[in-house]
Design a protein around this nucleic acid. Structure first.
Lengths: 310, 310
DNA sequence: ACACACTGTTTAGCTAATAAACAGAAGTAG
DNA sequence: CTACTTCTGTTTATTAGCTAAACAGTGTGT
């Protein structure tokens, strides 16, 4: 009888869970996985993920590049462990408040802080669900806040996932500024201002009326946190949903995932042609807009020149 | 008098807006930026962003790697243009339904479809706000749905941003499976199943009670779309908020962004020490858990062996 | 004592981005 | 028409970065 052996843990994940045999013989180890990961995280925090090369990490510890491979099978491994280390355990502070709503909000904020501290985490690829101890702990904490609610298991998962999503999205957008400010040497505020100026210059009322109005209302210079607003609304919606359940509403039918059937793309010729047609039309539109813009620009320049010389 | 010249458009963005001078002299061009970008997008769709090297794109067009540099200043440029191309203009289908809520939901779904079609987009770094024509068009479409609502400009931006965030988050998670299925050769379903098995194996009721319960309730095997649930709740919350405004509620005070003061991190020694202490404690806890897990595993193996031989 | 399992290091191979120098093509000024 | 200039796609070469393989030295178990 073949034992139903579960699939092998990927080496990196095994390391993260601490299920890795330590060798007994041979010379004493001078480094450790933890020291390596620490060094890598420090480097990423300070200079961005781009600065994290095997050589840089090793040299920060005073060793040669190849030495790291005695502790870590490949760079991807190291990145996974860095993620795990930077994720850390969820702080307990969200337990100091009462009620699922306050706790979820606190958990959201804790996650945002985490991402602000380690913005590089957001540029690492996500590979499916987080099967590492610390990520699991965060997810567990999110689910735990909802234990006293009448939500189904699936709904709880959806809520916990949504909170993480909000935090990530907030982090992603802010990390964009962080990165740019690192690259240009400007402060994040200056980057934002520069960007607002670019926007202002390029968004016309004819092409983007709603966006233009938003710019004119100075949304990009506002100090308000749009992400906070969004989480609050989401929590409102969840609260209302729970209230409905308490009132006796039934859980709605599940909505299936949106799925793109690869066959749909590869097989159906008519669909493909239709898509192609749309793309062509888009291109044509864009081309026309380009010409318009260029013409406009030239006209403006002419006027400016006339004014100057006149 | 120095003219208040706005900052130069980055080359890539200039290209995206079509504000790039075409040369007049010299031999006829055999390629075009568009053909290059098309080829790159096709490649990324088919084989993932990892397959997009300058050489691969060039060879797909039948040219040498360096030829591309006559059209695109650097790979980053190409990536930006790919993003812009794959983003496309928002389909008009969301205009076929009535009311801000239905339109936003449609816009959400359209974005999800876009990300499913081009999952690689989600692994490109975000650099601040989307200052390209197509991205702007999506944002404009989102804001436009809210024009008839009593929301402030900032609130509208927050809502539009949130919808994008939900779509991205949905795309990110699903792209994780797509990528993994490409790497392993398994179907996405198989990947999900394998992952569920891994989870099942590693999550104990003692360490992660809530998560364990969720697994036992088979949330990871459910066909329900957790992201859809979350957007619906968010839209509920926004609807309730709007209803409140209509009833005469006032807009709440703005919440400031969460900001990590770098000085806070660098300067305050006590804080730093406290943080270090927390990290040490976390490590200790993790180490203890590791040992526990390893012991448990060994014990199980012993039992299994005994059973076999007995 | 000796074999073996390990250590960190050296060397080398590979992929990938891109700078620099090139020969030939097409406009343009005389 | 001719010479000059600008531009084309190509060739060559440099650089950074990951990692396989071979190596000399170290400590443990027999």
């Amino acid at each position: 009888m073949t034992e139903t052996e579960p699939p092998e843990l990927p080496r990196g994940i095994a390391l993260a869970w601490g299920v890795a045999a330590n060798p007994q013989r041979g010379p004493k180890r001078e480094m450790s996985v933890e020291k390596i990961v620490d060094a890598a995280v420090e480097l990423a925090d300070a200079e961005g993920i781009g600065a994290v090369s095997m050589a840089a990490v090793a040299s920060r510890l005073g060793f040669t590049p190849m030495s790291l491979y005695r502790y870590v099978t490949a760079k991807d491994d190291l990145l996974l462990l860095m993620q795990e280390e930077a994720t850390g355990l969820p702080p307990a502070s969200h337990l100091e408040v009462e009620g699922w709503r306050a706790r979820l909000l606190a958990l959201y904020q804790e996650q945002v802080v985490m991402y602000l501290r380690h913005p590089w985490m957001l540029s690492l690829p996500i590979t499916g669900s987080p099967i590492t101890p610390n990520s699991s702990a965060w997810l567990d904490a999110g689910l735990a806040t909802l234990e006293d609610t009448p939500l189904t298991a699936e709904e709880r998962m959806a809520v916990a996932l949504a909170v993480t999503g909000h935090a990530r999205w907030c982090g992603i957008v802010q990390a964009g500024y962080t990165e740019q400010s690192r690259g240009t040497g400007l402060t994040p505020d200056e980057v934002a201002a520069r960007e607002a100026a670019l926007f202002d210059r390029v968004i016309t009322a004819e092409e983007f009326p709603a966006l233009r109005r938003a710019i004119d209302d100075e949304v990009f210079l506002s100090a308000a946190d749009p992400f906070r607003f969004a989480v609050e609304r989401t929590l409102d919606g969840i609260a209302a949903y729970i209230a409905g359940l308490d009132r006796g509403d039934s859980h709605p039918d599940v909505t299936e995932w949106i799925d793109i059937d690869p066959a749909e793309l590869a097989g159906d010729r008519r669909l493909k042609e239709a898509q192609k047609a749309v793309r062509e039309a888009e291109k044509a539109l864009r081309a026309a807009q380009k010409i318009e813009r260029q013409t406009l620009r030239e006209a403006r320049e002419r006027v400016a020149r006339t004014k100057k010389s006149g």
